[in-house]
Design a protein around this nucleic acid. Structure first.
Lengths: 199, 199
DNA sequence: GTCTATAGGGCGATAGAC
DNA sequence: GTCTATCGCCCTATAGAC
């Protein structure tokens, strides 16, 4: 279905507002956080660079941290959990969920992800938010596994472990040379768990 | 060396200040967060109940969240990692570190821990802080394992997995009926990992 | 202790599209 | 008329600076 914004875009006329306020805010925020640091950046700075006001920033993002965490990963994880084949074991389902998350970060997004991660690594407040997002994936997996009839104890362990492995794979993807994509590294982390927990 | 507080304690007289301002602030904060919610509680409220000023609160705690996270767990984890026998495998060391963390919460602390956890579970801002604290344990384990000569990939996986298992055990301790102590539950989580990752 | 900047929420006004 | 995105000005509490 064609939206008003689409029509405006086609006609090529400037409407009342520049399009994609949300995206412009996110871009401006990352730039400024990288340039001068998260704490040294005010919401007014971000809004100003995006050609908007402070108040509009808070319409699009609940707080100053959230502007870096707007990706499609939660939906991808939920979809993977919904579509996981009935026969799969618990850990295999957790693995599918994390592979879906990895799918949100194809190789071409690595430069952006590295820039974003450098900002997060320099800022405890952003690390906290990142950990909460990852924890929410664990909750999704736990709920899905329980719904599939797994023991609560198994669901929880698999959920937390799966996310732990994704964290490891993601860190390796960011720190590495780009030779392996995130999907491969995620699969590798699940394989490595078997080795570590056996040996 | 003897501090002023020590001297006051010995004499047994009430000096210029009631003793243990830090503890009183923590107690007042938990009460208020439980009574009316974290966001509905101001730092002035907490300080007032503790008979202190707002400014004094920030001398003892860096921010409003930190007042719930002042325990000895980090030191216990560090000590366990320092004293881990040389022969132990990576996962065994992670397990020792998490058992040391569990040691900070003996059965008699469960009522307090449950009250505190209820507040945290109701407050995303506090969940974020809790996750950051747990993540800092993973960093400690990772560093210690790397120092012991483990492969970086193994260190990271073991570190994240160990903390993941502790999270599961802690949740079970809080949610359960108190029949199992946290140490037992933590050991059980490490045992269960073997079953889950094998089967 | 005092002062101040900033985060972030409430609410109403405005200006288009339909 | 309704709906939606933006702006403006109010406010309080946090947290850092002095």
């Amino acid at each position: 279905m064609m939206t008003v914004a689409d029509i405006v875009g086609r006609i090529g006329r400037v409407a009342r507002w520049e399009p994609d306020a949300r995206g412009r805010l996110a871009e401006a925020a990352l730039e400024l956080y990288a340039e001068r640091g998260y704490e040294q950046t005010t919401v007014a700075d971000i809004a100003g660079r995006a050609g908007l006001t402070e108040r509009t920033f808070f319409r699009h993002y609940a707080d100053k941290r959230e502007v870096l965490f707007g990706g499609p990963m939660p939906e991808l994880v939920e979809a993977a959990l919904r579509e996981a084949p009935a026969g799969e074991g618990a850990l295999a389902v957790g693995r599918l969920a994390m592979l879906a998350a990895a799918g949100a970060l194809p190789p071409e997004r690595r430069p952006f992800a590295r820039k974003r991660q450098a900002v997060i690594d320099a800022t405890p407040a952003l690390q906290e938010r990142e950990l909460l997002k990852l924890d929410s994936f664990a909750r999704l997996i736990d709920r899905a596994l329980t719904a599939r009839g797994e023991e609560p104890a198994v669901s929880r362990i698999v959920a937390e472990t799966s996310v732990a492995l994704f964290k490891v794979a993601f860190a390796a993807w960011i720190d590495g040379d780009g030779g392996n994509d995130l999907t491969t590294l995620t699969e590798g982390a699940f394989v490595a768990l078997g080795r570590v927990s056996a040996g």
